[in-house]
């Protein structure tokens, strides 16, 4: 399992600079928002965490379709499915998701405080955004694995993956942004939405890989 994690991590970092493109995309999305809503710093400070979250959500969907497609094209996926008896396929999917997260999404979570400064978010808000992104974005990878597995056989499944995944990712977005707002403005405490966010990530960490493994087995032909 560690071997699979390391291989996927190496591929994510080495092949085509996937991680870098994700971060650039994130930067570009977040940078475009002020042009849309105007350079009012108070407004930006208010909606800043939400912008960071939406940017991270979109960037998280970006490389998702390749999660299994690359393995399918070179035949590795068959071998992963065949190794089911030794390494349960759901577990392999989980490991692949984690590697995908570390290689593609973690860099932009790390970049988010910098963008928070651009958005004029106050320090506590930046910390909250960072913490919620760190805890919440794995859920996007896990739930995204279902879409990636279902669309693995499609030549251009990327859009379809996004269409299928976005409605399911709404709870993650809601609680991520709620926790940020609770930390900065709200009278509500920060912890409840944050803990629910963590629970969502754990929940999707179970249901996502299982459903994805089921879909991959069904698609193995």
């Amino acid at each position: 399992m560690l071997a699979l994690f390391l291989r996927d991590l190496r591929l994510g970092i080495r092949a085509g600079g996937g991680a870098l493109v994700g971060v650039i995309f994130f930067l570009a999305v977040v940078a475009v928002i002020p042009f849309g809503v105007g350079p009012d710093l108070n407004l930006l400070a208010r909606i800043g965490p939400a912008i960071l979250w939406i940017g991270a959500l979109l960037a998280g969907l970006l490389g998702l379709e390749r999660l299994f497609q690359a393995d399918r094209e070179d035949g590795s996926l068959d071998l992963l499915v065949l190794a089911d008896g030794r390494h349960m396929l759901a577990l392999s999917v989980l490991v692949k998701c984690l590697a995908h997260w570390v290689a593609n999404i973690l860099p932009l979570v790390i970049a988010s405080p910098l963008l928070g400064i651009f958005m004029n978010i106050e320090p506590i808000g930046i910390a909250a955004a960072f913490a919620t992104l760190l805890v919440g974005t794995p859920a996007i990878a896990f739930i995204g694995a279902v879409g990636a597995a279902v669309a693995v056989a499609l030549p251009r499944g990327g859009l379809l993956v996004s269409v299928l995944i976005l409605p399911l990712a709404i709870p993650v977005l809601i609680f991520g942004v709620s926790a940020c707002y609770a930390a900065t403005t709200g009278p509500q405490p920060f912890l409840p939405p944050f803990l629910i966010l963590a629970a969502l990530t754990l929940f999707f960490a179970v249901i996502g890989p299982f459903a994805a493994a089921l879909a991959l087995k069904a698609n193995a032909d």
Partner: peptide, 9 residues
Amino acid sequence: RAAAIVTLV
């Protein structure tokens, strides 16, 4: 099966 899995999820 793909549609079934997505529906159930």
